[in-house]
Each structure stands twice: as C-alpha cells, then as structure tokens.
Design a binder for these strands. Sequence first.
DNA 1: ATGACTTGTAATACAAGA
Length: 264
Amino acid sequence: MTLTIATWNVNSVRQRLDNIARFVEAQAPDVLCLQEIKVRDEDFPAEALRGLGYEHQLVRGEKGYNGVAILSRRPLAGQNARSWCDKDDRRHASVRLDGEIELHNFYVPSGGPKPDRDANPKFDHKLSFLTEMADWAREEAIADRPLVLLGDLNVAPLETDVWNHKRLLRNVGHTPVESEHMARLLEAGSFIDAERHFVPPEEPLFTWWGYRFAESFQRDYGWRLDHVWVTPPLAGALRSITVFREARSWPQPSDHVPVILTLG
DNA sequence: ATGACTTGTAATACAAGA
C-alpha cells in the first residue's frame, strides 16, 4: 500500500483548473497540497476538484493573496491550521492521513525585493517565519512523530538549487542568512530533505522558473523553492520523489511545478 | 537592469510574487 502526496504552488487555483486536471490525469496523487490559491474559501472551486476525485478538502484561503489547501482521495482527520508571526494570512494547513501520518502544508513568505531585515519588512517577516517554524518543530518535538512537511518554502538553500549560485547569492531566496534559517528548521525537526534523499546535492534540481526571464524554462534558469521533508519515523517509508517538470511547458503554466512524494 | 510576466483587485493602474 503506497501513499502519494503532491505539493504545488499553482499561482491562483481558478486560473489553473485545466492544468490541475491535466496533472491529476497524469499522476493522480492521493493527496494534493496547493499553495497560493489566491481565493476566499467561499469562492474555492471545491466542486470541480471533487470531480477530479478529491472528495476530502481542507481550504484555508483569503482574498487575492496566499492561501493553501489540502485535497485528498482518502479521509482526512485532525484538520488544523495556525497563524504565524501574529498575522492572519493563510500560509499553513495540517491534517492527519491514514490515522497516523501528520501532513503540514506551508507557504513561506517570499521576502520582498531586498535581502535586508532593517530596510525591508517582508524579508524580516520571512526570517521570523522560518524561526517560528523551527521553534514550533522543537517545542512540539515533531521529530518523534511520523510527519511530512512540504510546500513552497521560498528558499533555495544549496548551490545546486539555483541555476547560477554566484550570480544569485545576493538575491532573496538564495542568501546565506535564509539558507541558515532553513538549516536550523531542518535540524529542529531532524527532517530528511526527501528531494535531496533521492537526487544527490551535486546535481541541479529546480521546481520554479520565473515568468519574467524570457525562456527561463527553456534555458533551465530555475530554482528549488518547493520542498518535501519527512521526520525520521518515515525514513524507512521513502520510496520516490518526482519533480514533474513537464507541467512548466503546458499552456498558461504556474511558475512552479508539482513535486510528488511516494511513501510505501 | 530596482526590467522582462502573471495574477487579483479594481477600474486601466497598482501591489505582489521571488
């Protein structure tokens, strides 16, 4: 019995319904975690997604920005969510699957244009968010429970997580201070980076290609911003990771592609 | 090159993404 869980920053769930249907037709993950749904709960296309087989849904949306959802073919338990950094933006949702696996879906703040905590409040928010996640992981002792943490974490921590390390070192998303914050979070939960468990760190691995750079995908000017982590109790269940790159070449794509985890 | 494109909101311009 395997369990497949996908994460995808869709950059507006309403604009991406056709792509989501195409992805589900190709991969049919048991659970589909979305970020940046950009819609109020009451306007979420719940019926269309039920039609794709996702009868069980936890939606945490807001108007215009952010928003996450967990869609599942199997029953969900323990639906939950919390606020981070004393804001009521919708960046997190969690559930329990098959009675025991905890799943946390995150959309970490992007951090604004300038990697300067003092000059740019959005960058400060991003670092505070990552610190709060690490505190949570430690305080809740999540390392001892079977738990999957995934989503758009908006940090590409390794040199091979961006298309040009030297050139992008001072760009938000790839600065050393962000990578350090992410490393502290990884350590706080004793997490295994499932993507790098299957793809060696020497090998470039990307999940996002920007819209602005013409032909960014064709030239593979990518970043690894989307992550899938598991705690040690799930280490023995890791079967595969698939970065579904082809979704970036479809019409009207999201700038992120889905990543699929298989547990068995 | 502090830009390029895409989205939502609101009203044809702006904020936000990263």
